[in-house]
């Protein structure tokens, strides 16, 4: 059974149908990429899964439970973390307080401390800057903080929305290496990216979105060699 299963999902903004009945699934241990142009509905899908927007129709199953109507704030406690588009770190809180916010739903102090050490080991720069206000970090550092903050909830799956957006090429490579590492340590990843080439290079499978529909899906390496994908998304 899939860890995350989205079925016939429809989402509206007012009267505008943004997501037109899409279905996809993510299995445990996979990296799944959702690729597509700006406005295709990638971010909307992630927001609907984690309850920031509600679905009009369809269902979302996570870990065997139907979470379509679950209040958003309860979802992170079930094991699903979301690194939102534009990072959205708490600019006026310190790096340390941002990380603690990531562990908001956890009670065990010892486990939280262990996660903190794990995040500091993975992102040494966050440790160096733990007392600094998050708003003073560079874009790449903020992306690392947003990812570290998500890891603090000890998730089974992480949803990542455009982690490479606005970053220099060096940071982009670093961020994608980190995503690979996070996945290798046992966390499932659902990745939304405009940088299709990078996304496909680390994904197991991918879905291609166009204006609220999935138009293509399959093995990431196959999609990378698909002529229509090459033309539309890889710029070849």
């Amino acid at each position: 059974m899939a860890m995350l299963e989205v079925k016939d999902l429809e989402v509206y903004y007012g009267v505008i149908k943004a997501i037109k009945g899409i279905s996809f699934e993510v299995n445990e241990g996979e990296v799944i990429a959702l690729i597509g142009a700006n406005g295709a509905g990638k971010t909307t899908i992630l927001h609907t899964i984690t309850g920031l927007i509600s679905a009009k129709a369809g269902s979302i199953q996570f870990d065997g439970k139907n979470i379509t109507k679950t209040p958003g704030y309860k979802i992170v406690g079930m094991g699903m973390a979301h690194v939102p588009e534009g990072r959205r770190v708490f600019a006026e809180l310190s790096v340390y307080d941002n990380l603690l916010m990531g562990a908001y739903t956890r009670k065990d102090k010892k486990e939280i401390q262990d996660s903190l050490e794990m995040v500091y080991t993975r992102f040494p720069r966050l440790k160096e800057r733990k007392g600094q206000m998050a708003g003073t970090l560079s874009g790449g550092e903020q992306q690392m903080l947003a990812m570290g903050r998500a890891l603090m909830s000890h998730p089974k799956i992480i949803l990542m929305d455009e982690p490479s957006m606005g970053l220099s090429p060096i940071y982009v490579n670093e961020i994608f290496d980190i995503i690979k590492e996070i996945n290798a340590s046992g966390t499932t990843v659902l990745l939304v990216e405009q940088n299709a080439k990078k996304a496909l290079s680390i994904a197991n499978r991918a879905y291609v979105l166009e204006t609220g529909n999935i138009v293509l899906d399959g093995d990431a390496t196959e999609l990378m060699n698909d002529d229509s994908v090459k033309k539309a998304y890889l710029g070849e």
Partner: peptide, 24 residues
């Protein structure tokens, strides 16, 4: 305090706070 930090987080970005598990 934890509820206090949640208040700061909500005042900055309610959506992001909700993603952390804060009941806005």
């Amino acid at each position: 305090s934890k509820p206090g930090r949640a208040m700061l987080a909500v005042s900055e970005d309610g959506g992001a706070a909700q993603l952390m598990g804060v009941n806005v």
